[in-house]
Simulated scan of single mutants.
Amino acid sequence: MTETPGWSSPDQQPNQPQQQPPPGYYAPPPPMPQPSIKPGVIPLRPLGVGEIVDGAISTMRRYPKLIIGAAAVVAAITQIIGLLVQLPFLKDLTAAVSVDPNTVSQEQFVQQLTDSLVGFLGGTALSGILALLGTVFLSGYVTVIVGHAVLGEPVTFAQAWDEFKPRLLRLLGASLLSTLVIAIGVIFCIVPGIWLGVMFSLVTPALVLERCGVGTAFGRSRALVNGAWWRTFGILVLSYIIGAVISMIIALPFSLLGSAATGFSDDPAVALSAGSLVLSAIGGIIASTITLPFSAAVTVLVYVDRRMRAEGMDIELQRAAGHGGI
């Protein structure tokens, strides 16, 4: 993609002289409908919602080892490390919830439960940070692959990594900044947080594909979403619902196995057993392997669709794909 002109923003493209029609008395014939050009996973024209979802699925099917394999590794690392972080606090927490309040003073019981809960929640927060880092990496990596998939180009892991590696630190900074801005919006009121989340939802593909800075990526996302906020919101919500349903379907058998392993006990100490957490982690790995790259691919294709609608990028992509445009 370093040699592909189609991903550069309009500000990066040189001004090209307008071609004047040849003189004559006859008006040009009316434009004929052109067939859709589809060198890769999507037709190179403004997309419908179904085409965006289908394009994300097609990308995962076309590059299963690159996408599913990488997602499985990232999900396994984050889930396993998160589980290992939580386990040291699990024994203290289960011991605290198992204590009979009648055998100790109320102050001791509350203090022991609070200390154990704080430690467990701290481990959970650290697990969440690890999951965020894994999601950031996977989103940028998948963005590179989708960029090739749109043009129908072959790509290897080494090639995708070489293209993504220089953007990793900037993407991490942009993701942390975006998370902070959205969190502030949510604290003041949920609606501003949602609005900001959608407005800056295209920062990752803009930063990775256009190879721009963090501030420029935020500006590009805002410019592309502006005027199409509700459509962007609807597509992202649809992808979230699809991912949530897939996660629920995958996690349900592991949840039932965990409950069966504990004899469907209502005892909190039993419910927080290491075995149930391990089964939950396995279900999370499988679910994340599918849902994370799907959501990332949908976001990239929303970005591509917005650029084709707002900036006429379909012409540039057709040229990059070797079709010379319409």
Rank of each mutant, 00 (worst) to 15 (best):
T4E: 14
D11A: 15
Q12P: 04
Q13W: 11
P22C: 00
V41R: 00
L44W: 06
R45N: 12
E51W: 06
P64F: 05
K65Q: 11
K65S: 10
L66V: 10
L66W: 01
I68A: 10
A72W: 04
A72R: 01
V74L: 04
D92M: 02
A96G: 10
P101S: 03
P101R: 00
E107K: 10
F109M: 13
G128K: 08
L130R: 01
G134S: 07
V136F: 13
T143Q: 06
I145G: 00
V146G: 03
P154R: 00
E163S: 10
E163H: 02
S175K: 01
L177N: 01
L177E: 00
S178I: 06
S178D: 05
V181K: 06
V181D: 03
V186T: 14
F188T: 07
V191R: 05
V198D: 04
T204K: 02
P205F: 14
E210N: 07
G219V: 07
G219E: 02
T232Q: 03
G234P: 12
Y240D: 03
A244N: 08
A244K: 04
V245W: 04
S247W: 08
I250C: 11
I250E: 04
G258S: 14
T262L: 07
S265Y: 09
D267H: 09
S276Q: 12
S276D: 09
S280Y: 08
A281G: 13
G283P: 13
A287F: 09
T291I: 12
F294D: 02
A297M: 06
A297K: 00
T299K: 07
V300R: 00
V302R: 00
G312M: 05
G312F: 07
M313N: 12
A320F: 08
G324L: 11
